Amino acid sequence: MSTSISKYPAKSLLVCIAGTSLTTQETLRLKHPLVRGVILFARNFESSRQLKALVQAIKNASQTPLLVAVDNEGGRVQRFKTDGFTHLPAMADLYRYFANANDDNSKRLDKHALSKQVREYPSKQCLTSVSDIGYLMAYECLSHGIDLSFAPVMDVDQGSDVIGDRAFHESPDIAAQLIEAFCDGMHQAGMATVGKHFPGHGSTKEDSHFHVPVDVRNWADIKNNDLKVFEKLITKNIVDGIMPAHIIFKQIADEPVGYSKHWLQELLKKQLNFKGVIFSDDLAMVGAGASAAKPLSYLERFEKAISAGCDIALLCNKPVEVDVLLSQIKPSDIGIAPTDINLTFENPKVNEVNHQEKISSAKDIIKKIKIWKSA
């Protein structure tokens, strides 16, 4: 057993479950003092009613509060799309739709590449709609008891296989405006924002789910492109949580960002003055297991993430490995949960009239975007 950490912070691991209801083994796992909660997947959804019951069962499984999260960002990455949930468009389509509507030559433009051809700042109408869609996404999750959707994607689209149209735009300045609007909508609904994938995955072609991405750019290129979005929105205190990328930026540090004290402690916390919660990306991804000598064990991955500065680590789709990890940590090795982790967002309540207007407006724009995409 590794002994590189003398005390593991309580409530610092997010796990997943297999189906649409809790098993006895999963209920026991959720009682473990290291487990902070659950991230849900499409396999956990059967209906709106079933999901609400499942979320309630998860929260009832422990005497201490458990967090329930999901990736419901929209487009290709949205776990719940029916029966109480609206299938959201890809974030890149929000800008593309309004750019198309405002361009006299729209019929000659490729709708799939439109944002690369139009570089004007988003209109007020576009920003309002983006905010409304952020509100809708957050509201639908919260109404089912889900605390967080890991959103928004703050990457800029510069050729990454895994990001692509998940990014709002390929221009950092335009992306920052759109992301700020989306975050505003989430906040109005009462959901904290979790920006990903710090300091930016959109310029790295390989998918860290299946590869160990290495970015060889220098600091100036990173700072003036990918990092620019994070810096702008962290400075405005709009980002409540951050999820770092499983990318090695070779000229900056020799480890993936989520394992790097330089990236998380020195740059994110000290230089950018980020005060929120840091979530690791999934420790089961190939990009999280790299080692010069041998593949890292899941305990080693967990330790490296926590030591680097992650408050909560995610280990998904590996229930056996989760149980092995938990068995390797004695109760006496677990400390107390940090008191400065705040996963709730206090906001003025939106009145019923404004609520209905936002929901109606968001659904109307989504319908129009689907028609435009299919034309």
Results as ranks from 00 to 15, higher is better:
V320R: 13
I39T: 08
H209K: 09
E352P: 01
I359V: 15
S129H: 12
I278N: 09
L34V: 07
H355E: 05
A253H: 11
Q271C: 04
K31W: 03
S260C: 07
I329K: 00
D103Q: 12
S160H: 07
C183T: 08
A18V: 06
N354R: 07
A337S: 14
Q78A: 09
I312Q: 04
A337L: 02
H169R: 00
I278C: 07
A290M: 02
A101H: 07
S123R: 03
D364A: 15
L296I: 06
K275E: 15
P348N: 10
T20G: 04
A181W: 04
I312L: 01
L88K: 12
E231S: 14
I174F: 03
N351I: 02
E231H: 12
L14W: 03
K370N: 14
I234C: 02
H169W: 00
D173R: 12
V257S: 07
G159W: 07
A253I: 02
V214L: 07
F182A: 10
D184Y: 12
A99M: 06
H144V: 05
A10S: 14
L233V: 10
I242V: 15
I371M: 09
E352W: 04
I365P: 04
A288H: 04
A181V: 03
K370H: 14
F249G: 01
L109W: 00
Q158W: 10
E231M: 12
H201K: 11
D93V: 01
K223G: 00
A313D: 08
I247W: 03
W372Y: 07
L314H: 10
K31C: 06
